[in-house]
Computed example of a mutant assay.
Amino acid sequence: MSNFEICHLIFFLECGFCNLTFMNLLVIAASGIGCTIMFTPTLRALRKKFPDAKITFLGISKGFVIPVEGSNLVDEVLVFDFKKDSLFNFKKIWGRLKFIQNLRKRKFDVSITAFPSNKWFFNFYAWMVGAKKRVTHFYKTSSLKNLSFLQNTKVKTDKNLHDVDQNLNLLKAFGKVPEVDKSLYFHISKENEEFAKNFLQERNLLSKKLIGMHLGSSKDYSFDVKRWPEENFAKLIGRIEREMKAKVLIFSEPNERKEIEELAKKFAVSPVIVCEDLKNAAAIIKRCNTMVSNDSGLMHIAVAMKTPVVAIFGPSHITRTRPYTDKAKVVVNEECNSCMKYPFASTSIRIVCDKERICLEGITVNEVYDELAHFGAFKKIDRITH
């Protein structure tokens, strides 16, 4: 028996649940909406392996818990709204300490920090919560820099794995990883489905061929460098409207609506702009024939909704975050390597591009259109029309 296996055997003997029938389990999601979605197969596996466990899902932003909110994958969702620029705001420190104190009182048996997690705050927070067993990934960066020594169970990372499989490997901390459905999941309700139906019906789009688009990506940590030029999206919309006779739905934040309207006017295109909350947006994406998107949370939502995806990749790790489905095409400039060093080579999530975004600037409208056409823009034949 290896030292690794002996340590876990001792842990279960000490905690008194060698039969693994019950645990008070905390999942810490700290890296984004897309990252939460890519963790859902692991939640499914945890449910299968520990059917009697109480699973609490904790996000450091409200958006991070939305994919699993209302689902049977978790028993409870909590939000610890962490903002880096207010970390040392003493007016908020007391409230945060009380939040952590209340979590400590729950006496979690296990905490699991979702991938990627190579940041000091994630490890410090897991330690503060005080679960007996604290599971995370092992990174080659200094444990002093990321405070990973505060976690007591670490699973090796593999830079050749997709984030979905990286997360599933965390279950090695509990023995054999169970066979599980690895498809992505995003919870929507019947009310969200009804909203989507009415949204399209009011615009006479229920029987139309629909192409969803997401022009954006998070603006945090310079993630806007992951955006294909908006002018290219506008030109792509023009070709779709002329040649495919399809309607384009642009999914957007409300504060970007005016900018998109001006872009549409400039290029004489007429997309439908969708500025709805995430669950209603997901229900509409479910009814699209295909989704065209940058590497973003909405791209992963489309995968979870089983909508075919044409993904445009720039500085992101394609191996890590490509659409986790066989119903996808990825358009990428092969001449440019990823500028994103996190989490394997750096503890900084910020993307620093020193090549003036040639990875995205070099991808032409024709390339994306051809992938869309060859892939089959209307491949999703089971779209609901009633």
Rank of each mutant, 00 (worst) to 15 (best):
E231K: 13
E231D: 12
F233M: 00
A234Q: 04
L236T: 02
L236M: 00
R239S: 09
I240E: 01
E243Y: 07
K247I: 06
V248F: 01
E253C: 02
N255M: 01
N255Y: 08
R257T: 11
E262S: 10
F267A: 09
S270V: 09
S270L: 12
I273Y: 06
I273N: 05
V274N: 06
V274I: 10
E276S: 10
N280F: 07
A281E: 07
R287M: 15
S293C: 07
S293K: 13
L298E: 09
L298D: 12
V303N: 04
A304W: 07
M305I: 10
K306V: 01
T307N: 07
P308C: 10
V309L: 08
V309K: 03
V310Y: 06
V310C: 05
A311Q: 07
F313Q: 00
G314K: 12
G314L: 05
R322A: 15
Y324W: 14
T325E: 13
T325C: 11
K329L: 14
V331I: 15
N333A: 13
N333D: 15
E334C: 04
E335H: 11
E335F: 12
E335P: 00
S338I: 02
S338E: 02
M340D: 03
M340T: 07
K341F: 14
Y342A: 10
S346T: 09
T347Q: 12
S348A: 14
S348M: 13
I349L: 05
R350L: 14
V352P: 00
D354K: 14
I363W: 13
N366P: 02
E367D: 15
